[in-house]
């Protein structure tokens, strides 16, 4: 059984100083479960990830906080320690170096630090790691391109997205609920609105 009281406190603590850290944690999508969360971290400045907002899927195992939270990138990212396909993260504190002294927020801060300081010698994605070591310029360009393509959408304010979609002729209430359900991704919302 997950320690829900602690998780609630963690969410409060983390979202209290969101203006300072830029890191937020929300319940995932429309689920009401405290065991399935979405964390958001801004790409660190002066890295190819600058300007991007990265969503991280968080699942809390039964033994939390004794067992580490399971985290993986929901936003596609080009990084030696993150799988470009599955978003799996290679980070010691999410494995054997986890401790109940850590929190979801400190774990997300560590993930953010990993974006600043890749460890290509201990890779999760071997292709990216090889590119990082052999051809850094191409690596940086690819990482920047991925950031622009996959992590940029969410930087547009939610109101701007609503406005844009409403201008396309969709009712505002539906636009808002659809955007909410896809985690604020404008393109996915449009797709869903068109197909629905």
């Amino acid at each position: 059984m997950v320690d829900f009281a602690r998780v609630q406190k963690e969410l409060q603590e983390c979202n209290k100083d969101i203006d300072v850290s830029g890191i937020s944690i929300k319940l995932k999508g429309d689920s009401n479960s405290l065991t399935h969360l979405t964390g958001t971290i801004p790409g660190p400045l002066a890295t190819p990830y600058e300007g991007g907002n990265f969503n991280i899927d968080i699942v809390l195992p039964d033994g939390y906080p004794f067992e580490p939270p399971r985290m993986q990138f929901a936003t596609k990212v080009w990084h030696p320690n993150i799988s470009s396909q599955s978003g799996a993260i290679c980070l010691d504190i999410l494995k054997d170096q986890w401790s109940p002294a850590l929190t979801l927020k400190t774990a997300l801060l560590s993930v953010q630090a990993l974006l600043s300081a890749p460890e290509p010698d201990d890779p999760q994605d071997a292709v990216v790691a090889q590119q990082y070591l052999r051809d850094y310029q191409t690596f940086a360009a690819t990482a920047r391109y991925w950031t622009e393509t996959f992590a940029r959408t969410s930087t547009l304010g939610i109101e701007d997205k609503v406005k844009k979609l409403v201008e396309m002729g969709f009712p505002e209430a539906l636009v808002r609920s659809t955007l909410e359900s896809v985690g604020g991704d404008e393109n996915m919302a449009l797709e869903k609105l068109c197909s629905g």
């Binding site: 580490p68 399971r70 396909q85 599955s86 799996a88 993260i89 494995k95 999760q124 994605d125 071997a126």
Partner: peptide
């Protein structure tokens, strides 16, 4: 061989542990 690293998922490692 290189791709094998992709498949050592954290939870698989922890399961073994």
């Amino acid at each position: 061989n290189v791709d094998d690293w992709e498949n050592f998922r954290d939870d698989a490692i922890m399961q073994q542990q």
